[in-house]
């Protein structure tokens, strides 16, 4: 297992958000995390990336315990993440956004940067080349010099993915990457997620409400409801699970259409 959560418990002022959650993501797997609104999916992401400190349990990634680590250390170990709502660095160009993502993979120190040593200049050129490679991978290299927030919405989503790729992750957490995309863009996203795994060998853990997309892309699906893990399995297994159907009953049509 690349990522293993054991008995993770998270409480906010007496409200238990996650009850003893146990689950794992295998090396180079495509896994989805689904569940009704408020099930605790994003909270779980926040526990993994170090933004929330769970009261109990453990999160082990690639042999390292993450619970005591600051977010930037977690990223350095190889976990990247995108957000539900876009969080690009406004006012910076597309390329600069992606280059900022490579910060944890650079070695030149601040003093080398102040004095612009030859080593720093060489590294700067390498970073630029790799960032451009990430943009080519997601298909928006020709927009690299534009200010990030002036791009079309679907392309801004791809900048986020390119920036996450630039951290050289082993695992990518995508939080609702299809939100706000039209059906053509969703098809392209499915292709992109598969290529991230197939060509880059990166495991992907996906939170998504679009069940069509989830069923198409995931090898395994984990279902969370009210902070508890209620089902786990392949798309077909989860679709037939009575507990999952119950959890989704009374939900909006789009989400209930399992």
């Amino acid at each position: 297992m690349l990522l293993k959560l054991s008995d993770v418990q998270l409480r906010f002022a007496g409200n238990t958000v996650l009850h003893d959650v146990n689950f794992g993501v295998a090396e180079s797997a495509l896994t989805s995390l689904i569940g009704p609104n408020g099930a605790g999916k994003t909270s779980l992401f926040n526990c993994i990336t170090g933004f929330y400190k769970p009261q109990g349990g453990s999160v082990v990634f690639d042999g390292h315990e993450l619970l005591r680590l600051k977010p930037h250390r977690v990223t350095k170990l190889g976990i990247a993440r995108t957000f539900q709502n876009l969080r690009l660095f406004r006012e910076m160009t597309v390329l600069e956004n992606v280059m900022a993502g490579m910060h944890c993979r650079t070695h030149a120190g601040a003093f080398a940067a102040v004095f612009r040593t030859p080593g720093q200049r060489r590294e700067e050129a390498e970073i630029r080349a790799e960032a451009e490679d990430c943009l080519r991978f997601v298909g928006i290299l020709d927009e690299k010099d534009r200010i990030a927030t002036t791009l079309a919405y679907g392309h801004q989503r791809r900048v986020e993915i390119a920036r996450a790729l630039a951290t050289r992750p082993k695992l990518m957490l995508l939080d609702e990457p299809a939100a706000g995309l039209n059906s053509g863009e969703k098809d392209e996203l499915i292709g992109l997620i598969r290529r991230i795994r197939d060509e880059r060998g990166v495991a992907v853990l996906l939170i998504e409400h679009d069940m069509g997309l989830v069923m198409k892309v995931s090898e395994r699906i984990t279902v969370l409801d009210h902070g508890r893990l209620i089902a786990e399995g392949t798309a077909d297994e989860v679709r037939r699970d009575p507990k999952v159907i119950e959890a989704y009953l009374g939900q909006e049509e789009g989400e209930a259409a399992l």
Binding site: T49, G50, F51, K70, P71, H72, T75, K76, A80, R81, F83, R87, F89, R90, E91, M92, E96, M99, A100, G101, M102, H103, C104, R105, T106, A108, A110, A113, V114, R116, Q120, E123, E124, I127, R163, T167
Partner: peptide, 26 residues
């Protein structure tokens, strides 16, 4: 420094969104 180095870019990025920076390993 600010426009052509990683730390300079990080400085601008920090002024925009600190949490996102942490996720970028900054």
């Amino acid at each position: 420094f600010v426009s052509r180095t990683q730390y300079g870019r990080a400085m601008r990025a920090v002024s925009i969104d600190k949490d996102m920076c942490r996720l970028m390993g900054i």
